[in-house]
Design a protein around this nucleic acid. Structure first.
Length: 582
DNA sequence: GCCGTTTTCGGCCCGACTGTTTTCAGTCG
């Protein structure tokens, strides 16, 4: 059987892996970067990859020359690449995983491999514990301890739970196929995916159909399935190639769908409470449905009917964590106007080729419009973010000319002039106030000097919020799920100040960030702090991140009225200004 | 490996921090 055709994302992933392998090999850093920028370019391209390959027009993309074009074409047409296979064969696969650890780059990884024959994270942990690493040149006792810390973080989260945003595209692809399977009536994800938890373990899917067999077959033979782990009369388990993800599918008669969906959506804690409530009313609630004391079964068509039976408001999946939603639903004070994706009018927080984004302003504008947004806030990095191509003050004016031009070229849509200005170590902003005052949206973010202590970082943020030019704090905790802990600061104090001064908090939808996270959103909402749900887009495909920001906001009980980018452009800008003028 | 061009090769983004050094290499953002 021929290998499945590779899409943009798959080719980009291979180019990135080649870049890592070349680094291990000690190749020229600029050559290495060429592979990375090539991957960037593929992910940012608006054209169809297959068409460009067929027409031999790959080199028209900036950053892709003849060399890369040939390799990409080989990958797309044959699914293989000689160079890639050679490189993979030259190093133990565990070295790539070691590279993901903080503090470890190619040089150190190769030293560990060459000197100690440490070729995996497990080997490395052992070597550190035995004190063998400190003997190496360039390493010491401190680095040994830091590596162990890094491994602990890595293992706590890696290999077990995966980021929602990394998993959801795979899940949605499978759902599409299952919807079209023979006899299928209803299909849904369940479990943590449906609750939109920030990370998920295994994926649970549910379908209803008169006959399970043909539906189970559709999953077992779906593209991307690496191995069928088990298949019975009503269940099928598979492992996907992508991300080593396990997917379980259950198929049952449609009359059982709602109660089963409810059961497998969880959370466990939410269920335990509901079962108790059911018992009080004389019902037994289980995986198999709702039964009266005499054993007769109630017909539950929809989940909402179940909540109604228990005398409470319908509880959306995102809120089912037993964190107060049951009491609220019983008392009828669950928010009816919880934020939805449809409420969002504008995309907030984006980068273009003016700083470290991959698409031009016009491409970003057209893509955002196609997704139904009315506006997009253009917020490039500021000058302190040198590594991200941050804009100097004087470059802004030239960018505004292009924004004006795009705004004329794309009718019915508006790019808003903004900046993601660095919050410097002192809490000062990276541009003069006279420049910031001329912008429509100012997001302030911490990008450098994460290593400050709680006291210093709290002061830094509070001090930044004292500047009336600042509208929004971007990714307020700086965490990267699976990669970096949040920097330490006193969240309550910062939220109190935000409420007092009219500073808005970002709910960043980038799958690695989700920052603020749901529990912080809830704290913010309780204090009356306003929010934006953002995309933090560096390329057009990132505009979809708004869905993750919305999910996070919902999990934090945010209502439509508390999220400013549910407003049209002019009221949005006016509200930002008005909040700071209080 | 890409790009621009001086069409054949040199420049490509860099500053700060950390832990290791004793003057700096490696990593990170």
């Amino acid at each position: 059987m021929s290998p499945p055709p590779l899409d943009k994302a798959a080719v980009a992933r291979i180019l990135r892996e080649i870049s890592l392998l070349l680094q291990l090999k000690g190749e020229n850093a600029f050559k290495v970067r060429a592979y990375d920028t090539g991957a960037d370019r593929l992910l940012g391209m608006t054209q169809e990859l297959g068409a460009l390959v067929r027409e031999g027009r790959l080199t028209e993309l900036p950053g892709i020359g003849q060399g890369l074009a040939d390799k990409i074409a080989e990958l797309v047409t044959t699914g293989k690449l000689g160079l890639y296979e050679e490189l993979k064969a030259a190093f133990p696969p565990g070295l790539l995983e070691m590279l993901q650890l903080p503090e470890l780059g190619p040089k150190k990884v190769m030293a560990l491999w060459n000197e100690l024959k440490v070729g995996s994270v497990a080997d490395l942990e052992k070597a550190c514990r035995e004190g063998r690493v400190r003997a190496l040149k360039g390493f010491g006792a401190r680095s040994e301890a830091k590596i162990l810390e890094g491994i602990a973080l890595h293992q706590r989260v890696h290999g077990k739970r995966k980021r929602l945003g990394d998993v959801l595209p795979t899940v949605e692809g499978l759902l599409e196929r299952l919807k079209a399977a023979p006899g299928v009536v209803r299909v849904s994800p369940a479990g943590s995916v449906r609750r939109r938890a920030e990370t998920v373990g295994d994926v649970d899917l549910l379908a209803s159909a008169p006959e399970a067999g043909p539906v189970l077959d559709v999953l077992a033979t779906a593209p991307g399935v690496a191995v069928v782990l088990g298949k019975g009369e009503s269940k099928c388990s598979v492992r996907m190639t992508e991300g080593d993800l396990q997917v379980d599918l259950r198929v049952l008669p449609d009359e059982d769908f709602a109660t089963a969906l409810h059961h497998f959506t969880g959370s466990k804690a939410h269920h335990v409470r509901l079962r108790g409530l059911g018992q009080d009313k004389g019902y037994k609630i289980s995986e198999w449905g709702v039964h009266r004391a005499d054993g007769t079964k109630l017909l539950i068509r929809e989940e909402a009917d179940l909540y109604k039976l228990l005398g409470m408001q319908d509880i959306p999946p995102e809120l089912r964590e037993d964190s107060g939603e049951i009491e609220a639903a019983l008392e009828g004070r669950l928010p009816e106007d919880l934020l939805t994706l449809e409420d969002v009018r504008g995309a907030v927080h984006s980068h273009s080729t003016w700083s470290d984004g991959r698409n031009s302003l016009e491409e970003m504008a057209r893509a955002a419009q196609a997704l139904g947004f009315q506006y997009l806030t253009v917020t490039e990095h500021s000058q302190a973010a040198v590594y991200a191509g941050g804009l100097k003050e004087e470059e802004l004016e030239r960018q505004w000319e292009e924004i004006d031009r795009v705004n004329e070229a794309v009718p019915g849509f508006r790019l808003l002039k903004g900046i993601e200005v660095d919050i410097l170590e002192t809490g000062a902003l990276d541009y003069r106030d006279s420049v910031l005052e001329r912008l429509e949206v100012v997001i302030g973010s911490v990008h450098i000097r994460h290593g400050m202590d709680e006291e210093q970082m709290t002061r830094r943020l509070l001090s930044a919020m004292d500047n009336p030019c600042l509208n929004i704090i971007g990714h307020p905790t700086g965490r990267l799920i699976h990669e970096r802990e949040p920097y330490p600061f006193r969240m309550e104090e910062v939220l109190d100040r935000a409420a007092e001064r009219g500073v808005v908090m970002e709910v960043n939808g980038s799958p690695a960030r989700l920052d603020l996270k749901a529990e912080h959103v809830r704290q913010a909402v309780q204090r009356g702090v306003k929010l934006v749900v953002s995309v933090d887009a560096h390329k057009i495909s990132d505009l979809h991140h708004v869905a993750f920001a919305v999910a996070t906001a919902r999990k934090g009980w945010a209502r439509k009225g508390e999220v400013l980018n549910t407003l049209p452009a002019d009221p949005f800008i006016a509200k930002l200004k008005a909040l700071r003028a209080r």
